[in-house]
Design a protein around this nucleic acid. Structure first.
Length: 637
RNA sequence: GCCGACAUAGCUCAAUUGGCAGAGCAGCUGACUUGUAAUCAGCAGGUUGCGGGUUCGAGUCCCAUUGUCGGCUCCA
């Protein structure tokens, strides 16, 4: 074996180093400047710690904070500093885990003292002190027993548990900066000095290992950057993002609100209803085109139905129940059983399949109080549900059809989304064979559409596996919206059938699917996506007419009537205010078009058009304005 | 449900160690008749989330409760 390693660089050049040279030394040799920013190196696309002596050469790339992997390592190193600071200030604190997350890092702690916001400031100061000391991160390896003993002696029971659960062949590594030492797979930045800006953002409770049966630890969240300015930019962006919060905008724009009188039960105001009705109209048009029929099923149905569907057994804790004439009833948490009854109410021929039955159905679910979140997580919501009953041979095509429909909807709004495939949960009905078959069908449809997806093992519904479509809110939290769930069980339970070519009864296969998911949630996401500036076809008020003085009101009314006659949602601001004041208000209400009318316009049947985001466009003929906005609305631009 | 923080006028926020609840915006009234992001003046607006307690005195301190926010768990 050679005692040299050969490193080739991106530009094609090659260099030779003695074996066991560390990544850091090589990075430093390649470029002094780069070495300062270097966080780790990638050797043949595998991330390697800068501290590790290399045993083989290969294609090398130096990772900095600019890369996603670099950021993750950087944040993870920050979490170690957080842990060190906390242990310095609160001796005896036991450590949980401290990973990097998408927007920073956290560390879980177990201690008697309850962290306060003032503590965060102190901890931040201590972190800054550690950063200033510029202590090197060092790596050492231990065998399993040695490591267990080591952490036992230090009273780190959670670390001991983690080690015991590591697979047998894992190399157990520890990292330390100065006195502080932690179980860690690495890699890390060269030294604490790299972390130039740190901000602890919040304290929260979190169950050890994510299980509510375990002790609740205290979690501190933070964010860090290699430059002070980057932190300031981040905080500024965060403030800007918060202005898009649908809860804030919903109230400001008088769209919807959740009141203390009905926690989790949203109110829709007149303007919010316009938005909602536009979405529903669009939904009906598209589903009609795609061969769906619409039904409506009752909100309250008797207990035996829920026993048949399995909801009573699996979902009862989340259902609202009531008693009518000494009989138990439940408010529907899902629309499916109603849909099953409608399908079962008549005979179906194989020639009629697939039957696609849609329902904008209002469902109620008793969600935990702590889970509620604006319109995103509520206790009553409208699902744009549909159940498709089909022949086994039609499964893939139908799933593909739904995927295409979802994509068409989300593209219209300009959403980017990600897809997840969820498989059989522990608490599930039906055999493994059925589940495998159903899961395979979903997988095939995704592959056929060439879609990337994440697999969530054990995350399916109790009656079948599912494909979920996830959208992001203003703070990058993702919310499940669309979903496609394959269900081999419900048709069985409801004894549904169709008459096949052979004249015999057969069991249809069914999918549940939603596109918006919850109309309420979708409106929440839409509000944040557009920051309240809805495109004209959705905007509650599309045009506001602003007469300059009292004597222009008459003409303004005429303009208003003409707009209304052309089905444009228009309002007039007749108040005795200056034009600048009316414009300011119209802009803040995010109305797509403001029409200023004064003497010039009244004389020639004109309107001065001010477009949201573009400002004053000058005067235009009223008729040509109406024509243009009508096209914009009908084309949903 | 769990952990923590918060709750003052319609909205955004003040109120010193416990000592007379206040401002801007919005609303109403009046004047001004206005040309592209706030005209001026006046008026009105409150059981400080709700319920207890400590105190001569509570928006402020303590207890309980409801709701909200940030997480955890759960979930569309």
């Amino acid at each position: 074996m050679s005692d040299k390693i050969i490193i080739s660089l991106k530009d094609g050049s090659q260099r030779e180093y003695p074996i066991a040279t560390t990544g850091y030394q090589i990075a430093e040799d390649i470029s002094r400047r780069l070495a300062k920013d270097a966080i780790a190196v990638k050797l043949d696309d595998k991330v390697v710690d800068l501290h590790l002596p290399l045993s083989k050469g290969g294609q090398m790339e130096i990772l900095t904070f600019d890369s996603e992997e670099g950021q993750e390592i950087f944040r993870h190193s920050s979490s170690h500093i957080l842990a060190q600071a906390v242990q310095n200030l609160f001796p005896g604190t036991k450590l949980g885990i401290g990973p990097a997350i998408q927007s920073g890092f956290y560390y879980d702690f177990d201690l008697e003292h309850k962290f306060t916001p003032e503590d965060l400031e102190k901890i931040e100061k201590e972190m800054e002190r550690i950063v200033k000391e510029d202590i090197s991160y060092e790596r050492k390896e231990m065998d399993r027993q040695e490591a267990i003993e080591f952490f036992k002696c230090r009273g780190e029971e959670y670390k001991v548990e983690l080690i015991q659960d590591l697979p047998e062949d894992t190399v157990i590594s520890l990292y330390n900066q100065g006195e502080f030492i932690d179980l860690c797979a690495g890699p890390h930045v060269p030294s604490t000095g790299s972390i130039k800006a740190v901000k602890l953002t919040s304290i929260a409770g979190a169950y050890w290992r994510g299980s509510e049966n375990n002790k609740m630890l205290q979690r501190i969240y933070g964010i860090s950057f290699p430059k002070k300015q980057a932190l300031e930019d981040y905080l500024f962006k965060l403030e800007e993002a918060k202005k898009r919060d649908h809860r804030k905008l919903g109230a400001q724009l008088e769209l919807y609100s959740i009141m203390d009188e009905g926690p989790g039960f949203p109110f829709f105001f007149p303007k919010g209803m316009i938005l909602r009705n536009q979405l529903e109209n669009f939904w009906r048009e598209e589903h009609n085109k795609a061969g769906y029929q619409e039904i409506k099923t009752p909100i309250i149905l008797n207990q035996s139905l829920w026993e048949t569907s399995g909801h009573w057994e699996h979902y009862r804790n989340n259902m609202y129940v009531t008693e009518i004439d000494d009989q138990d009833f439940a408010v529907k948490p899902m629309n499916c059983p109603g849909g099953m009854l409608v399908y079962g109410s008549k005979m179906h021929s194989y020639r009629d399949l697939p039957v696609r039955m849609g329902e904008l159905g209002l469902v109620h679910r008793h969600e935990l109080s702590g889970a509620l979140h604006g319109l995103m997580r509520v206790r009553c919501f409208t699902q744009d549900d549909a159940h498709i009953f089909m022949l086994p041979s039609q499964i893939k095509d139908e799933i593909v059809g739904v995927i295409e429909l979802v994509d068409k909807f989300y593209k219209l709004f300009g959403f980017s989304y990600h897809v997840e495939l969820s498989t059989k949960p522990e608490k599930a009905m039906g055999s493994d064979e059925i589940w495998d078959k159903a899961t395979e069908a979903l997988r095939e449809a995704l592959e056929q559409k060439g879609m990337d997806y994440i697999v969530n093992e054990g995350d399916g519904a109790f009656y079948g596996p599912k494909i979920d479509f996830h959208l992001r809110d203003c703070l990058d939290r993702t919310w499940q919206c669309g979903t496609i769930q394959l269900d081999f069980l419900m048709p069985d339970k409801f004894n549904l059938s169709y008459i096949g070519e052979d004249g015999q009864k057969h069991r249809p296969v069914m999918i549940h699917r939603v596109v918006f998911g919850s109309i309420e949630r979708f409106i929440g996401i839409l509000t944040e996506h557009y920051a309240g500036a809805f495109p004209a076809w959705l905007a509650p008020v599309q045009v506001k007419v602003l007469p300059i003085t009292d004597r222009h009101v008459e003409y303004a009314e005429k303009v208003l009537q003409k707009l209304k006659a052309a089905n444009v949602r228009a309002e007039i601001d007749k108040r005795n205010e200056k034009i600048g004041y009316k414009i300011r208000e119209g802009q803040m209400q995010k109305i797509p078009y403001l029409l200023v009318v004064g003497d010039k316009e009244a004389e020639a049947d004109m309107v001065a058009v001010r477009k949201r985001g573009e400002g004053d466009l000058g005067s235009k003929g009223l008729d040509s304005f109406i024509e243009a906005i009508s096209i914009e609305i009908s084309e949903k631009k």
